[in-house]
Amino acid sequence: MNGELIPLHLLPPGCSGRVCRIEINGAARRRMLDLGLTGSTAVAALQKSPSGDPTAYLIRGAVIALRSQEASQIFVAPDNIK
């Protein structure tokens, strides 16, 4: 877990990680918090949409699609990058 942080949108589908930092502010930050994206939440990237953006993530048992624009401001510590 002491690897470097990567923005969530670069987490490859099939991989998981833990949220470390959210650099979104204002109402959008609130939205992310409400979805359960708080410190050290486990996140798994499931799959990208046909055009590559948005991506579906598994967050606290729910599947949530986020656009790269938001995901790029959420930093995760990846669990298992091959």
Binding site: A28, A62, V63, A65, R67, Q69
Partner: peptide, 11 residues
């Protein structure tokens, strides 16, 4: 500009 977007994909 487009606003934040989070879409739930229910089971």
């Amino acid at each position: 500009l487009p606003s934040t977007f989070a879409l739930e994909l229910p089971p």
